[in-house]
Design a protein around this nucleic acid. Sequence first.
DNA 1: CTCTGGGTAGAACGTTCGTTCCAGACGCGT
DNA 2: ACGCGTCTGGAACGAACGTTCTACCCAGAG
Lengths: 212, 212
Amino acid sequence: MTRHAAPPARPHAAVGTRERIVRTTSRLMQRQGYEGTGIKQISREADVALSSVYHFFPGGKQELATEAVRHADREFADILHEALAGEDDPAEAIIACTGTLGVHLRGSDWFDGCPITATALETAGRAPDIQQAVAEAFEHWRGIVADKLRQSDIDQDDVLELAHTVINTLEGAELAAQVSRSDEPLRIAGRHLARLINSYRRTETADATTHG
Amino acid sequence: MTRHAAPPARPHAAVGTRERIVRTTSRLMQRQGYEGTGIKQISREADVALSSVYHFFPGGKQELATEAVRHADREFADILHEALAGEDDPAEAIIACTGTLGVHLRGSDWFDGCPITATALETAGRAPDIQQAVAEAFEHWRGIVADKLRQSDIDQDDVLELAHTVINTLEGAELAAQVSRSDEPLRIAGRHLARLINSYRRTETADATTHG
DNA sequence: CTCTGGGTAGAACGTTCGTTCCAGACGCGT
DNA sequence: ACGCGTCTGGAACGAACGTTCTACCCAGAG
């Protein structure tokens, strides 16, 4: 069976088995972390045979988790890219981004925060493959933010460091939003990040929407 | 037995049994999260009988985790308070704070990040007691930062929101530092937070150490 | 048709999980 | 010396963990 095209006559799978495993794993690990997610739960919720999981991922849970992190990487990158593309001004784009994250978070009853943070913390220093995939995801996301910042008149030397803090603050604000079940941390983060970004512009752009 | 005073003639415990359980739990959950930490591992590493754990914490793992989060709250608050007290200027104090966190992190081979983040994410939305303790810890830490910020000429209306972003950015930077095994995210966060804080001052204080 | 190989169903492995139970050891007031 | 409440040692519970294994189904190639 070719895996490129969608198999036409499958009973209940609009998407291939392997992909369904990865998506389910990614979603479950987003909500309950690496240790809290079992292989049998994955096979159950993905409606896939347990043996199929080990067929596609002979490396077991670690290999599957690594692939799930990479999937979450691409998925979150799309969200980020789309949210940032909605505004021309980088500072406004970041604010729009926090808004999008807030909507996602609230819409999932405050469950769906950053898809890899829990897994990252649990496996840091003890599962190099996963840690590597997490590091690449963060770098990927920073790159997307940096690309947006480069569209304005910010010194190139400042862009990369700003991208660091933008991603890190978004991470922290999402965590706080989940814990407090409120999108206020995200809104505050958006305003402060916008102010910080504007402070690095060469030409002063006093913007009414990013005051105090 | 009174629990207020330390029992003098205990065989091998410089600190009481209950306290030793809590400390061990806190340290283990900091490194491997809630799901990754087992009760039997706790009793083993704390050198305490398994039945003693359930004697002191009849509520089981959840009650123990809640107490461990509260312990970590106090411990991290002490670190925060001490680090901030070393500098008069609030912006400089935050930078000193990121330095302290970086030293702690590097000294533990990048294992000891924020003591409650992993637990917070794993239990968000499914263990209200733990989530509540986490929320109180964050609020506590924000209060400490806010107290420091109030010592300068920042508008009172801005202090609370700034404290939000300071804590959130520190959280995100610690995560990034753990994943990348480098204290650069923390140093960047320190500089950006200092710049953000200074931007909220009524009197301009051009400071050579917090430039671009 | 047979042959082949990717995918599946399901049982089973040993280990660990959180939790419960009880008999016994200890300190202390009487 | 006694009784009592506090704490501990150790076994045991059912359930779930990650993983392995074999038999089997079934589409496509020859």
